[in-house]
């Protein structure tokens, strides 16, 4: 269902020498894959590549038994994108449409009947507890609510592949549990899911494989300082009394 062969992915130079790692993986229908790793490990890049938001320069990628590698046609690109639900870190909405209309947009684009659109939208709004925000506009909502709406929009058309970036899994435990139970239900029906997070969530019932990025271990001489350690002097812009702000 998803096959990646020697797919180059960008990563932080502190984690991967040269800043590029190659990833190979194979996922079948109904499988769930947790992609873990520190910041700049290439988790979001992997999701964006599979979501066809990032061009594939080399290697090979097959999605839903169709070639999605460097020579993908425009038509195949569009058709595959329509079958992928990507819940990104900062989801974009159409600001002049209400949350309900934004969620209904994939169905509207598929020329579904008005009755179907109304029924499905109502159902998914209730599932993600968004009924009270149905008539609100995206710009007036909190980040968590926007993420819930993004989840609803990504899942309403029952995609074959679901990609979830970290914020939807870490911002709110309630949303995470709700989303995971939904994904488990969809996976039983054949949906493949990739979930990206720095660390595996504690307390959630986890299913599926785990892929840790980067796949190359950083060499000690290349690995530079990533986070300030204890004993590091404060930057000039912080006066003495502000040092408590440092981690």
């Amino acid at each position: 269902m998803i096959t990646l062969e020697m797919l180059p992915l960008p990563a932080g130079t502190s984690l991967v020498p040269g800043g590029v790692q190659t990833v190979s993986l194979q996922l079948e229908r109904g499988e769930i894959l947790w992609v873990t790793g520190p910041a700049e490990a290439g988790k979001t890049a992997l999701l964006e590549t599979i979501a066809l938001r990032r061009p594939v320069a080399s290697g090979a990628m097959t999605l839903l038994n169709q070639d999605a590698g460097p020579r993908i046609t425009r038509r195949a690109h569009k058709l595959l994108q329509q079958r992928i639900g990507y819940i990104e870190a900062a989801p974009l909405f159409m600001d002049r449409l209400t949350i309900a209309d934004n969620i209904a947009l994939p169905l509207e684009m598929n020329h579904a009947s008005k009755a179907d659109i109304r029924r499905e939208t109502q159902s998914i709004l209730q599932w993600f507890a968004l009924e009270s925000h149905a008539r609100s506009y995206p710009t007036t909502l909190s980040q968590t609510t926007r993420l819930r709406a993004a989840c609803a929009r990504a899942l309403i058309s029952q995609p074959s592949i679901i990609l979830v970036d970290e914020p939807a899994l870490t911002l709110c435990a309630g949303l995470r549990d709700h989303l995971l139970s939904t994904i488990r239900g969809l996976a039983k029906n054949g949906t493949t899911a990739l979930l990206a997070t720095q660390t595996l969530p504690v307390g959630a019932s986890l299913e599926g494989e785990i892929l840790h990025l980067p796949q190359h271990k950083p060499s000690p001489e290349i690995a530079g300082p990533s986070m300030p350690e204890e004993g590091v002097a404060a930057p000039h812009i912080l006066v003495t009394r502000d040092e408590r702000l440092l981690p």
Binding site: A51, L52, R53, H77, K78, L79, L80, Q81, Q82, I84, Y86, L92, F93, M94, D95, L105, P106, M109
Partner: peptide, 12 residues
Amino acid sequence: QQQAVLLSMGRA
């Protein structure tokens, strides 16, 4: 933004 949303959904 509208265009980006449509493109991300694979819509014309």
